[in-house]
């Protein structure tokens, strides 16, 4: 018998790796489906994870997504090495974006990422140090 507890797994994300962008959230989604998490919850997590993953791809050099899954909740800790966010309150506003012209041409940079994470999670905490990196903590309860 396996002991009770959480499932943990780390995923690497590379800055500017637009080709593989979205893979981590897809993998997380598959894990949740295997565990039998309700479809609506799976989608919330998939959206939140995707937006956090994309922010690493778009703005940071590299990062990790740490998934923690318990019978009650999904916890995602997304840490990156990058420019950091100077004004978190501003970044949280719908439509605010510093995406480059090139990113916008690729269809990113609507400024809805962080607001969408907020909308699809039960807890969102952002810590950031300018010039060092960003830590985004997301929790979705079942």
């Amino acid at each position: 018998m396996t002991e009770e507890g959480a499932f943990r797994r780390n995923f690497e994300v590379l800055g500017e790796d637009f080709y593989n962008a979205g893979r981590v959230s897809t993998e997380i989604k598959e894990i949740l489906q295997q565990v039998g998490v309700a479809a609506t919850t799976v989608r919330r997590v998939a959206i939140a994870a995707y937006e956090a993953e994309m922010n690493v791809v778009m703005y940071a050099r590299r990062g990790t997504v740490c998934l923690e899954l318990t019978p009650e909740l999904v916890h995602l800790l997304v840490r990156d090495e990058g420019p950091g966010i100077e004004d978190i309150e501003l970044a949280m506003q719908e439509g605010y974006s510093t995406a480059t012209e090139r990113m916008r041409e690729m269809g990113f940079g609507a400024g809805m990422g962080l607001p969408n994470i907020q909308k699809n999670s039960d807890r969102l905490v952002i810590h950031s140090t300018a010039g060092v990196g960003t830590e985004v903590e997301i929790e979705v309860r079942f």
Partner: peptide, 23 residues
């Protein structure tokens, strides 16, 4: 209707245990 393949276990805690083992 959704036609998902059944979860690894009907009990969530046990399913999580199984996903750990799977990994």
């Amino acid at each position: 209707t959704a036609q998902l393949q059944g979860p690894l276990d009907l009990d969530v805690s046990r399913a999580i245990g199984k996903i750990r083992r799977l990994e």
